[in-house]
């Protein structure tokens, strides 16, 4: 167990790293810019291409990556505690696929194509998927085992993506428009989009932190928690709400980005312990670090083109997923 000072040190270190990486993300990329240029873009804006790129492309991108990374990681941490499943995360449980389907429906059936409409529909889709997951996981006598829930999520994801593909077959124009969004990316989003979503993310994050103590109790097992006087049903409902806000908001801004919700809570637990009051904020910081770093990497892998950052996180995340699956719940 780390001392309080040690944990505080980790948090501060994480926060400093996030700020540093955001600075790197603003300065490095396809358009050649320097540190002084970045500084002047904010202090003495002169309308040059470089300054424009920094203000309207790189800055939103860095902010969005940080916000989305943090939200996904916190949502993953909550889901893992809630379902007692080390593999739970917004993507594995089908939340991302649900959001993707709703976006394509709105685009191809109703012809919405503003990014605000995308965002709203993604938000609704996530909520539907979370609701579906909880309905399914609480059905039956003793609820669902982690294994069953993982499978259920995978099947729900398969179902949603099947519908999505079917719709896209009938509407080729829509395919062109949403393909990049469906891969998950923080590129080319406007700052206004983040401004519209950030209240939801902030609310979700705050709710999560308020629930941290209760989640500690819940982690000891449902019977124990109930014995200690915890209203487990209410806590679960509120936690689910936090997940919808965090995961739905993230998908709305950046599309389905996978694996952050799995990897980060595991790393965070290893370094800072299982107390949710420390775990949740630290997960948030690590999530932000991972997504900003992955996004910077995505610019350089196949320059001048960009890899969608969702592909990057999948490539990093799958080996990790397999590692956990091998050592984790497979042995029970």
């Amino acid at each position: 167990m780390k001392s309080k000072a040690g944990k505080l040190g980790l948090l501060i270190g994480g926060a400093v790293s996030v700020v540093l990486l955001m600075a790197l993300s603003i300065v490095y990329g396809y358009t050649n810019t320097s540190w002084s240029m970045a500084y002047h873009a904010f202090t003495a804006f002169d309308g040059s291409t470089e300054h424009l790129v920094i203000q309207s492309v790189r800055l939103p991108r860095a902010l969005i990556a940080a916000a989305v990374g943090a939200s996904l990681a916190i949502a993953g941490a909550i889901l893992q505690t809630l379902t007692k499943n080390p593999l739970a995360s917004p993507d594995i449980l089908g939340i991302n696929a649900g959001a993707g389907f709703f976006v394509v429906v709105s685009l191809s059936l109703f012809g919405f194509n503003s990014s605000q409409a995308f965002a709203l529909m993604a938000f609704i889709g996530s909520a539907v998927a979370v609701f579906l997951m909880f309905a399914i996981s609480s059905a039956g006598r003793e609820g669902m085992t982690p294994m069953k829930l993982t499978l259920a999520g995978a099947a729900i994801a398969a179902m949603f993506s099947s519908f999505t593909q079917g719709l896209l077959v009938l509407d080729e124009a829509a395919l062109d428009q949403v393909l990049f969004w469906l891969a998950g990316s923080v590129q080319g989003r406007k700052l206004e989009l983040l401004q519209g979503i950030i209240p939801y993310l902030a609310a979700g994050g705050t709710l999560a932190l308020l629930l941290a103590r209760k989640l500690n109790v819940l982690a000891m097992g449902e019977d124990v928690a109930r014995g200690l006087g915890l209203k487990t049903g209410l806590i679960k409902l509120l936690s689910a709400l936090a997940v919808v806000l965090l995961a739905g908001g993230s998908v709305a801004v950046a599309g389905p980005i996978g694996f952050i919700g799995i990897i980060i809570p595991h790393l965070a637990k290893k370094w800072i312990g299982t107390d949710h009051r420390w775990l949740l904020p630290f997960s948030g910081l690590l999530g932000a670090i991972l997504l900003i770093a992955a996004d910077i990497g995505a610019r350089y892998v196949i320059m001048p083109q960009e890899v969608p950052v969702g592909v990057m996180t999948a490539v990093i995340g799958v080996p990790f997923f397999i590692y956990i699956a091998r050592k984790g719940i497979g042995t029970k």
């Binding site: 593999l87 993507d91 594995i92 294994m147 993982t150 499978l151 995978a154 996978g258 694996f259 999948a314 995340g317 799958v318 997923f321 397999i322 699956a325 091998r326 719940i329 497979g330």
Partner: peptide, 8 residues
């Protein structure tokens, strides 16, 4: 489980 990972 590994199958789900590989599918992703």
């Amino acid at each position: 489980l590994i199958g789900i990972g590989v599918a992703a």
